[in-house]
Design a protein around this nucleic acid. Structure first.
Length: 104
DNA sequence: GAATTGACCAGCT
DNA sequence: AAGCTGGCCAATT
C-alpha cells in the first residue's frame, strides 16, 4: 500500500453504511452488505471491517451476525459487548436482543 | 492472474 | 443444542 486512504468503492460503501447505524442499535453484516450494494458480499464486509482503517469513524461494534450472535471483534468480543451495553443495547449471553436490530 | 484469507451464512448431522 | 461442510464475495499475497 502506498497511497493513503485509498479504498475501493465497495469498502467505502461499507464504512458509510456502518456509520449510519444509530447509537443503541445494531445491524447485521448482511444488512450492511445490502446497503453497500451487494447483499451477498457479507464476507467482504467482514473483511473490510476487520481492516477498519478508521475505528473512530466506523463503529464496527454495532455490527453483529445474522443469528444475532455478537460475532468477532479485533479487540475481543468482551469489549464489543461492553461497548454496546454502554450504548444502551441489551444482550442475552453472547446474543443481541432482536429488538435492537435495525434495518438500513 | 491464481491461490489464500477472513470479524460470514445456511443447511445438514 | 452444538459442530461441521460447502459456498459466497472482495481484498491481499
Amino acid at each position: 500500500m502506498r497511497e493513503n486512504s485509498a479504498f475501493s468503492k465497495f469498502e467505502k460503501s461499507v464504512f458509510q453504511s456502518v456509520q449510519k447505524i444509530p447509537c443503541g442499535k445494531v445491524s447485521t453484516y448482511r444488512e450492511v452488505a445490502k446497503a453497500a450494494g451487494n447483499e451477498r458480499a457479507w464476507r467482504a464486509v467482514g473483511n473490510a471491517l476487520a481492516k477498519n482503517p478508521f475505528p473512530v469513524l466506523v463503529p464496527c461494534h454495532r455490527v453483529v451476525r445474522s443469528d444475532l450472535h455478537i460475532g468477532n471483534f479485533s479487540l475481543g468480543m468482551r469489549m464489543k459487548k461492553k461497548m454496546l451495553e454502554g450504548e444502551g443495547a441489551e444482550f442475552t449471553g453472547w446474543r443481541v436482543k432482536k429488538e435492537f436490530l435495525i434495518k438500513l
